[in-house]
Design a protein around this nucleic acid. Structure first.
Length: 639
RNA sequence: GCUGGCGUAGCUCAGUAGGCAGAGCGCGGGAUUUGUAAUCCCGUGGUCGCGGGUUCAAGUCCCGCCGCCAGCUCCA
C-alpha cells in the first residue's frame, strides 16, 4: 500500500493512493466527462498522476481552464505537423506554451526558413493529424531515458530543458502517433478532440529570451473550442487593426512621424494640437485644484547634475548621448526629477509647506532601441504628466491615498472604468531603511484597498530605490495599458541632500514620490484613439460641430449659426464648398466630427438647424440654443 | 539592437519572365446650386526609400545603408 492522499472535489472528500491518475480520481467522485482538473494553480489532464492532496476543481470542456489543455495539445499537433513536413530530425523544438488567446511554438528547421506562406500547408497537416485522431499518451520516464530519447531525435533544445529540470521533479513525455515531446502537460485525450484554430504569424524569438542565444522561429496560433469563438477573436483582431492609432492619427490629422525628422519623434498636427491643448488645460486645472504647483524646466542639464542624480550610472543606456559646450557636458533630460528637486531646494523648506507637489508636463527624451518604436505608444521624445511630491513621513499615507484617488478620477474622466493595479515591493538589493519600505508599501496597499481596486502584488518587483504601484486601464477591446505610476524614491533625497525643517527646528529627510497619471501624453493619446476608434468624447474632439449649408443661398444663415456656436464656446467649422450634401456629410463622417449642423431652406425658414450626430445619426431639427444646451450637457458630463 | 517581411504619386495599391511607370482617391480648373456617407468633365502628380553593383537595358537581380511592420528584449 502506497501513501494515501485526500482530495476534495465539489465538496466530496476522496481518498486515493498517491499517484493515481486524475481521471481515475474524478471517476471515483462520479465525474466522467471532465477534461482535466485544477489542483492549486496547476491544471492537470486526466492522465496526470495526482501526487498532492487538496481542493480539486474538475475542468470541463468550455471552462476557461480547458482552453489551456486544448491549446497545449494544438502546440504539439503543430510541432508534429512541422516534423512530418520538414523531417523529424530536421525540426528542433524549443518551447511551445499557451498564450492568452492561443499558443506558439519556437522551432528551428534545418535547411528551411519558415515564412507566413508556409502556414496554410502547416495548418492543413495539422487538420490531417486531428483527423487521424491519435490517442495522446503521457509517459513518465527517467532522466537518462529522456536524454537518450531526445538525443536520438536531435532535440538539442529539449536536452537543455531537461538539464534545467530540478533533480527531484518527474520528467514526462507525451506521445501521439510517432511524435513525442517533452512536456508536463496538460493535454487532451486524443488529437481528434482539438477545436478551432488558425495559425497567425511567424516571427523571431531568442532561445530562452536571451539575445546571445540562437534565434528560433516562433509560430503563433490562436485557438478556441468553437469555430464561432475563433471567428469572434479574428473579428477583434480586425477591429484592432481598424482602430490602429497610427492609421487614425494620419486620417484624422492628429500627428505625424516623419522619417526625415527622426524615428520616434512626434509632430503634432493642428487638429491633434487642438485636442492636446484641451487635454492639457484640463490636466492643469485639475492639478491646480488639488494644490499642485505647476512649473517649467529646461530640456537639458549639465552632466554633473545627472551624475549626482545617478542617471549616468543607472540610466545611461536610455539617454541620448552627452553633448559638449564650452568644455562642459550636457544631457537632454530623460526625466524631470532633478529639476523639480532643484525647485524644492531653491530655499529652505519648513514642514509647514509640506506636502509640496510640483507638477509639470515635462517633455523628456529617451533612447529606445529602433526595433521597439511604435506609433505614439513607444517613442523617443514624449511629454510626461509628471509630478513629484515631497512630504514628511507621517504624511505618506494621506498623500498616497489622495494621489491614487486623483489618478483614478482622472482616468475615469477620459472614459476608462476598469483598472488593474500592480504593487511592486522591495527587491533583493535595495537601498533605504526597513521602516521606509514598510511604511511606503503599506501606504500603497492601503490606498488600493481603500479604493476597492483589483490588484496584484509583484513581490520583489520594485526598483532598488523604492516600492511603486502601476495602474493599468482596460480599453474597449479588453486590452490593458499601463498609465499611472506612483513610485517612492529613497535615493534622490539622499543624493541631493533634500531636507525640511521640522517642528523641532531640526533638519529632516523628506519622503519623495514620483507620479504620473496619464503616463505620457503621446502614449495616452494613442490609447484614447484606439479605445474610441477615433471618435473622441465631445469635450476632447478637435472640431465639435461642423456647419453644413446645403446651397450657397444658405451660407449667410449658416454663418449666423456658426458664430452663435462659436460664441457659446464650441470649436466649430463650416463647410461652404459647392458640394452635394451627401459628400459634405461623408467627409465629416470620415473625419469623425461628432455633430453636424445642417441648414437648408427649411432651417432658414424656421430658424433651426438639422442635427446629425456621428453616433446617433439624424437627430432632427432644433433651435441653435437647444443644440447649444444639448452639447453643453455632453461636454460637462464628458460624454 | 536582433530575426523575418516590406518600402512604387499626398493616401490605398497594381506593375507579369529585367524592355517607354499605372489605377482609384486626393489636389487644381470648369460645369452643376445640391436635403443626411462619394455629381460630372478636364487636368495635375513619381530621384520607384538612399547609395553602389550586374546588364545593351533595373521599380524588377545582387550588396550596403535608412525607414516601416510583426515579434524578441525593454518600457511612459
Amino acid at each position: 500500500m502506497g501513501e494515501r492522499i485526500k482530495v476534495f472535489i465539489e465538496g466530496k472528500e476522496i481518498e486515493v493512493e498517491k499517484g493515481t491518475p486524475l481521471g481515475e480520481v474524478l471517476k471515483r467522485a462520479g465525474i466522467r466527462d471532465a477534461l482535466g482538473g485544477k489542483l492549486g494553480d496547476e491544471i492537470l489532464d486526466l492522465q496526470t498522476p495526482v501526487r498532492e492532496g487538496g481542493e480539486l476543481k474538475p475542468v470541463f470542456k468550455g471552462d476557461p481552464e480547458s482552453l489551456e489543455i486544448l491549446r497545449h495539445s494544438l502546440a504539439h499537433i503543430m510541432a508534429q505537423a512541422l516534423k512530418e513536413i520538414y523531417g523529424t530530425r530536421k525540426v528542433h523544438l524549443g518551447v511551445g506554451p499557451t498564450t492568452e488567446e492561443g499558443f506558439y511554438y519556437d522551432v528551428e528547421v534545418e535547411g528551411h526558413r519558415i515564412t507566413e506562406e508556409d502556414l496554410p500547408k502547416i495548418e492543413e497537416k495539422m487538420r490531417e493529424i486531428i483527423r487521424r485522431d491519435y490517442p495522446i499518451l503521457r509517459r513518465e520516464i527517467s532522466r537518462e531515458e529522456a536524454i537518450k530519447l531526445f538525443e536520438d531525435l536531435k532535440e538539442k533544445y529539449k536536452i537543455e530543458i531537461i538539464n534545467r529540470i530540478p533533480q527531484d521533479e518527474v520528467i514526462s513525455v507525451y506521445e501521439q502517433g510517432d511524435f513525442v515531446d517533452l512536456c508536463k502537460g496538460p493535454h487532451l485525450p486524443s488529437t481528434g478532440q482539438a477545436g478551432a484554430f488558425k495559425l497567425m504569424s511567424v516571427s523571431g524569438a531568442y532561445w530562452m529570451g536571451r539575445a546571445d542565444q540562437p534565434q528560433l522561429t516562433r509560430i503563433y496560433g490562436i485557438a478556441f473550442w468553437e469555430e464561432e469563438e475563433l471567428k469572434e477573436r479574428l473579428r477583434l483582431h480586425e477591429e484592432a487593426k481598424r482602430r490602429d492609432h497610427r492609421r487614425l492619427g494620419r486620417e484624422l490629422e492628429f500627428f505625424l512621424i516623419d522619417e526625415e525628422v527622426g524615428p520616434g519623434l512626434v509632430i503634432w498636427l493642428p487638429r491633434g494640437a487642438v485636442y492636446r491643448r484641451v487635454l492639457e488645460d484640463y490636466w492643469k486645472e485639475e492639478h491646480i485644484k488639488r494644490g499642485y504647483q505647476l512649473v517649467y524646466t529646461p530640456h537639458v542639464g549639465r552632466s554633473k547634475l545627472w551624475e549626482r542624480s545617478g542617471h549616468t550610472e543607472y540610466y545611461k543606456e536610455n539617454m541620448f548621448p552627452e553633448m559638449e559646450m564650452e568644455g562642459e557636458g550636457y544631457y537632454v533630460k530623460p526625466m524631470n526629477c532633478p529639476f523639480h528637486i532643484a525647485i524644492y531646494k531653491s530655499r529652505v523648506r519648513s514642514y509647514r509647506e509640506l506636502p509640496m507637489k510640483i507638477a509639470e508636463l515635462g517633455t523628456v527624451y529617451r533612447y529606445e532601441m529602433s526595433g521597439v518604436l511604435h506609433g505614439l505608444m513607444r517613442v523617443r521624445g514624449f511629454t510626461q504628466d509628471d509630478a513629484h511630491i515631497i512630504c514628511t513621513p507621517d504624511q505618506v499615507e494621506g498623500v498616497i491615498k489622495e494621489t491614487l484617488e486623483f489618478a483614478v478620477s482622472m482616468l475615469k474622466d477620459f472614459g476608462f472604468n476598469e483598472f488593474k493595479v500592480y504593487l511592486s515591493t522591495r527587491p533583493e538589493h535595495a537601498i533605504g531603511t526597513n521602516e521606509q519600505w514598510e511604511r511606503s508599501q503599506s501606504a500603497l496597499r492601503e490606498a488600493i484597498e481603500d479604493l476597492g481596486l483589483e490588484y496584484e502584488i509583484d513581490e520583489g518587483g520594485g526598483a532598488f530605490y523604492g516600492p511603486k504601484i502601476d495602474v493599468k486601464i482596460r480599453d474597449a477591446l479588453g486590452r490593458l495599458w499601463q498609465c499611472s505610476t506612483i513610485q517612492f524614491d529613497f535615493n534622490l533625497p539622499e543624493r541631493f541632500d533634500m531636507t525640511y525643517v521640522g517642528p523641532d527646528n531640526k533638519k529632516h529627510r523628506p519622503y519623495m514620490i514620483h507620479r504620473a497619471i496619464l503616463g505620457s501624453i503621446e502614449r495616452f493619446t494613442g490609447v484614447l484613439l484606439e479605445h474610441y476608434g477615433g471618435l473622441l468624447p465631445l469635450w476632447l474632439s478637435p472640431t465639435q460641430v461642423r456647419v453644413l449649408p446645403i446651397a450657397e443661398r444658405h451660407v449667410s444663415y449658416a454663418k449666423k449659426v456658426f458664430s452663435e456656436l462659436e460664441r457659446a464656446g464650441f470649436r466649430v467649422e463650416m463647410d461652404e464648398r459647392e458640394e452635394r450634401l451627401g459628400a459634405k456629410i461623408r467627409e465629416a463622417e470620415l473625419m469623425k466630427i461628432p455633430y453636424l449642423a445642417i441648414v437648408g431652406d427649411r432651417e432658414v425658414e424656421t430658424e433651426t438647424v438639422s442635427v446629425r450626430g456621428k453616433r446617433e445619426g439624424n437627430l432632427g431639427s432644433m433651435r441653435v440654443e437647444e443644440l447649444i444646451e444639448f452639447l453643453r450637457g455632453k461636454v460637462e458630463r464628458k460624454e
